[in-house]
Nucleic acid binder design. Sequence first.
DNA 1: GAAGAAATTAACCCGTTGGATAAATACTGT
DNA 2: ACAGTATTTATCCAACGGGTTAATTTCTTC
Lengths: 235, 235
Amino acid sequence: MAKAKRTPKWQRDPEGMRLRILEAAKQEFSAHGLAGARVDRIAAKAGANKRMLYYHVGNKDELYLAVLEGAYDKIRSEERGLDLEHLDPPEAIRRLIEFTWNYFLRNPEFLSLLQTENLARAKHLKKSTKVKSMHSPFVEMIRTVVRRGVDGGDFQVAVDPVQLYISIAGLCFFYLSNSATLSVIFGRDLLDKKAKDERLAHMVGLVLAALTGQSVALFEIAKAPKSRSVVAQTV
Amino acid sequence: MAKAKRTPKWQRDPEGMRLRILEAAKQEFSAHGLAGARVDRIAAKAGANKRMLYYHVGNKDELYLAVLEGAYDKIRSEERGLDLEHLDPPEAIRRLIEFTWNYFLRNPEFLSLLQTENLARAKHLKKSTKVKSMHSPFVEMIRTVVRRGVDGGDFQVAVDPVQLYISIAGLCFFYLSNSATLSVIFGRDLLDKKAKDERLAHMVGLVLAALTGQSVALFEIAKAPKSRSVVAQTV
DNA sequence: GAAGAAATTAACCCGTTGGATAAATACTGT
DNA sequence: ACAGTATTTATCCAACGGGTTAATTTCTTC
């Protein structure tokens, strides 16, 4: 028998493999949900063997939780880089909305994972020790912005930062995560460029108008004079 | 051999059976999603045999679509009874928000079903002929309210009714459908009575303030003087 | 009271799926 | 070069789950 096999069939790369597995799992879980996800497909997509999943991460549930924690970790860390402190309050809120919107656009799997986890009534997330300790200092960031806005006279009311955050996230989240059914219902494509631009303008206008008491459509239109209405639309 | 079996083991009731199957399926699908739902559990919950599902409705996918169509049918019909025409515009918007909020609260399975269907990118809904024809005349209802509000000077801007509807639905939907993960993240129970009351007040305040340009917290507080802040919260 | 249709039950089929076992292959230190 | 360990592969399997087949029971009607 010739000795053969001079070239290694694979390189050892445990950390790389772990990452590929998690990435593949993220796609699979977000595309099919927890129950619909197939362990074999994850393995194949990661260029790995099914046994590897169990070796490197654990069983299906642990894998799912790891993906979920990773997703939260990612958004929280990006949020931290937002520093809204040295913007004047209305501009800070605008930036927050734009960040949230764009993050959701860039990371659709995050939306799907959240939906999946909420469908499961956060059963898995509750078990996570990591995520609980991540309570966003983000809320404090927003609280500060609101306080500054009120003190400086820009904002009319000192809104609860958690409510505000949930509202902003909700305005973005619902539109994007439900765009499929909404598009069918309303018979328009909500994901083409124009629709997305209009939505962003609408959300910024809605929230800022509520906070400042002035129709934001005004300076919105001033900024982009050619787009004919943005929040407002002549009747 | 004695003849036995004088009392019938079951009554024939095809329509009742069909309804029980659909109700059981609704619960199962909303609790576990499409892939997670178990045909056997549906049958058991309906007090039926698995074969009955196929006899009365069809296979798992058809069953799911039937449930989904039923859910849409229900909310659309309730919406039709809202008649906002003879309310003055701000009050009409308030009622719309309250209706949406309460409907979602009363029908949590509807939220779950929507989430599930959107996770599937509306694959099934697109096949439905019924739902497409249900385009809500609701949008026209809202358009009329907005137009009246602008004409009468109550509203500052003529917002696109579809955007407004999506915003209202989104504010309600996200809070409720994601309350499980949000509660974990923020470490507060978002579903107790007080939290729900505050949320409703926040949403009404946000939307009406944006539309009218006046901080709605004012007449909100006037109406319910004992609740200490509603939209606003002193800093 | 018998025939035929409608509704219901029980039992089985068979591909899928999560997970396990054990062997093979690459790397590390000595 | 050898031993020991970490990583990867190749198979296997028991449970499950959707769907089907065929028999059984009730209702209708003539």
